[in-house]
Amino acid sequence: MAEDFRETKPLAGLRVALSVHPEAKTAWLCRVMEMGGAEMHVTGSNPLSTQDDVAAALAAGGMHVCAVHGATAEQYRARSTPCSKRRPTSLSTTAAISSTGCTRSIRAYLQVIGGCEETTTGILRLLAMDRAGELRFPMMLVNDADCKHLFDNRYGTGQSVWDGIMRTTNLIVAGKEVVVCGYGWCGKGVAMRAHGLGARVIVTEVDPVRAIEAHMDGFTVLPMDEAAKRGDIFVTVTGCDDVISARHFPMMKDGAILSNAGHFDVEVNVAALRKMAAEHYEARHNIEGYVLPNGKTLFVLAEGRLVNLASGDGHPAEIMDMSFAVQAMSAKYLADRRAELHPGVIRVPHEIDDAIARKKLSTLGITIDTLTDEQKKYLGV
């Protein structure tokens, strides 16, 4: 795809603002879009996920970069602002665009052709904004593309979450009771990998269909009030807030480990835990210990932020190549159709998924069958 973009320049003349986790794989997405002719403006989408050497390398290569590892909330907001002030003509993002952000900076967004959102959390926000009539420009739902959520969310999250947890704690997973909160595509991957590592897996859900699916996949399904008493390691993967709340902490085992793989640091209510704790200390790099009044100690990984990025390197490149291909092709789609698109959400066309999957199969050395004309007629294709 880099070769295609370098040759055809589909983003020539456009400013592209990316809110991403600046690390090696996202850096390559930035460079591919730059090869496509875009002027790149890059900011971090999480205070702990920026890798400073990567951000510096992008800046040294001529991109506009506003990101630093370990930013405070104020620094994080300050570093995000320049991207909107640059008046981008195209916006790609791996973080949520809140309605507050859109209304506050509406003048900056007036010339935006469109954007691409590749997180489940962000898409929930976009759909809500679309229903409320608050979207000011087209947004492509990258996360819902097959070449994104079927692979990135399931296999990527499943592997990178456990890589982050094991690297940070240096503990064994086999034999432990793991509670996975949420059984969407990300939760499926986390539960599957935990089972493969020898854990006994408990799933909590609010969706009855997904709960049945988790049950039929062989996992124990419990409400959080029951799961809280049993878990050794907790992983939230819901996109919601207060999933593990104040009432759950006193129920937990001494030494329970709390981690989050949803986008924001609100799924585990760390603020409530900090408030109720009698003592709070750094137990190990990226691990905070909270001593409760009942004498139990709970451990929170990466401040409750994305454990696979704040405590690891994120998904493997062999997964993210497809996700970022969807990003790049969706940006091209917006650029090619800028005159005909209207504000609102846009599903990624099947043709983009098909083209990316065929490229991926080619790199894997895999060939597949092709329908004959008679078969296409039979199927009504």
Rank of each mutant, 00 (worst) to 15 (best):
V173N: 06
M192S: 14
R193T: 11
R200G: 03
L222K: 14
T168L: 02
C186T: 11
T220V: 14
V206F: 12
T204M: 06
T169L: 02
E226W: 06
G187V: 00
G184Q: 05
K229G: 10
V179H: 01
L171R: 12
Y183H: 12
V206D: 12
M192C: 14
A228K: 01
E213N: 13
G198M: 14
G164S: 12
E177I: 04
V180A: 05
G187D: 04
M216S: 13
E226S: 09
I172M: 14
N170V: 09
H195F: 13
A194E: 01
C186G: 01
G184W: 02
A174S: 15
V221D: 06
A214N: 02
R193V: 11
L197S: 04
A199Q: 01
Q159Y: 10
P208K: 10
Y183W: 15
D207C: 11
A191T: 06
V201M: 12
V190F: 00
L171N: 08
G158S: 10
K176H: 08
T220C: 11
Q159F: 05
L197K: 05
G196P: 09
G182F: 03
W162Q: 04
K188R: 14
M192K: 13
E205S: 15
A199G: 06
A211Q: 15
Y183A: 13
A199P: 01
R210G: 11
G158W: 07
R200S: 08
D207K: 08
V161T: 12
A199T: 03
I172T: 08
L197E: 05
V178S: 00
C186A: 13
G175Q: 03
E205N: 15
W185A: 09
I212Q: 14
H195M: 10
W185I: 01
D225F: 14
V190D: 05
R210D: 11
V178I: 07
H215V: 05
R193S: 04
E177M: 12
Q159V: 02
T157D: 01
G182R: 11
E226P: 03
P208S: 09
A174T: 13
G189V: 02
M166F: 13
K188M: 04
G218S: 11
M224F: 11
A214G: 03
V209R: 09
L171I: 04
G198S: 07
V221L: 06
A174L: 11
K229E: 15
T157Q: 01
V206N: 15
G218V: 06
